[in-house]
Design a protein around this nucleic acid. Structure first.
Lengths: 210, 210
DNA sequence: AGGATAACCAAGCAAGCGCTTGGTTGAGTT
DNA sequence: AACTCAACCAAGCGCTTGCTTGGTTATCCT
């Protein structure tokens, strides 16, 4: 499939995901992310993960100290990558509407591109972490939330939306996160078209739907 | 707290939830819903539920044949109730925008009113059910989805949104479902104000935010 | 008074869970 | 040739899981 070069960031080398498939650790994280995404963290056993790798369940603990550490590693990886790409994409956008579109495009790209498994784990399984680790993750995401809020405040000042930035951010985040339950790329609705629909939802008078 | 009498339905007698607190079965479902909502289905044990009722874990199986049956009963109860209230509220609304507001208000009322635990279980834990039972639930929700889509199609025909009804329905459903992770009634943002924000998100030129 | 029944307890079983242990293998280094 | 070490296996430990069993108690119906 061809790249979407206009607004979405280039994740290039990370093609089969954000994990290094050359190392056992990377392969482990990849299938763990897939299983956690499919059956949830509590619904996935270390034996499931081991079976996916073709090794014994005990051998997992040569690479990670606990099942929870695996979940945390998956999430940390996504947080770092998404932070980087989001800042890049926003900096490259020419105007306010372009920045909002960039935010949406990056988030949807993570939710449905090569990193989809790991991203939906980050979005949907944070309750499985103890509070201490949850707040570590939230610290890592602070920059991400700030960026959204800054751009949305800019949009509101420009008259593109009447909704307060922090509320709009949460509503949009929910709308986008939920797409992992119903949207599948490859169908009639292209990823680019989905970005435009979400943008039409976020901003007045930017709708080019249908 | 006073009722919101304008558009939200009156759930009256169901005050402490939608469960009949006079029966052991109702009390069981109530605390099961709370625990499933807090820790997830797989993260909740039958011993947790029993402890919440002050009985032995084995005694649960006098009321339900399996843990999964408990989850299913919680979900069925919400599906029935929400279907009924949604149809009522939409029928009572005077115009298109009012019908969209009614849809949003009912959904948010279920997510944050007395039935909040059970509703967020329905929205977030359906993956814990085997596919056969999932499709039983989906059949029960068909009327619900149809209603949303009909009203949103009407809104689009009236020029209130450029987004296709089925896509808008999914995006809005995500935005609303996600509020259970961040919104708490009793704070600065009232439930009524949240409804207006969500309405401003759904429809053009209906924004009265700030 | 006698019988049926709903609601529970006390005890525990079989299976599955996360994780540990001690040992093996094979590629890389010197 | 001797050594190191990452990557794994085979076995199983201690615990928790959902659920079963046989029996007890209180309430209601007749």
């Amino acid at each position: 499939m061809p790249e979407s070069t206009r607004t979405a960031p280039d994740l290039a080398g990370a093609a089969p995901g954000l994990f290094d498939m050359a190392t056992p650790r990377g392969r482990l994280l990849r299938i763990a992310a897939r299983l956690f995404g499919e059956k949830g963290f509590a619904g996935t056993t270390v034996r499931d993960i081991a079976a996916g790798l073709g090794i014994q369940s005990g051998s997992l603990f040569h690479h990670f100290r606990s099942k929870e550490d695996i979940l945390f590693a998956v999430m940390e990886m996504v947080v770092e990558a998404i932070n980087r790409d989001l800042a890049e994409a926003v900096a490259a956008a020419p105007d306010t509407a372009g920045r909002v579109r960039a935010l949406i495009a990056v988030e949807l790209h993570y939710l449905h591109g090569p990193a989809s498994d790991a991203t939906s784990v980050l979005f949907h399984e944070w309750r499985a972490l103890p509070k201490a680790r949850r707040s570590v993750l939230m610290n890592g995401r602070a920059a991400y939330f700030d960026l959204w809020q800054t751009v949305l405040a800019e949009a509101r000042a420009a008259g593109l939306t009447p909704i307060e930035p922090e509320i709009l951010r949460q509503l949009l985040h929910g709308a986008l996160a939920w797409t992992s339950f119903w949207y599948r790329p490859g169908g009639a609705l292209t990823p680019e078209a989905l970005v435009e629909r979400a943008l039409a939802l976020a901003l007045k008078d930017e709708g080019r739907a249908s």
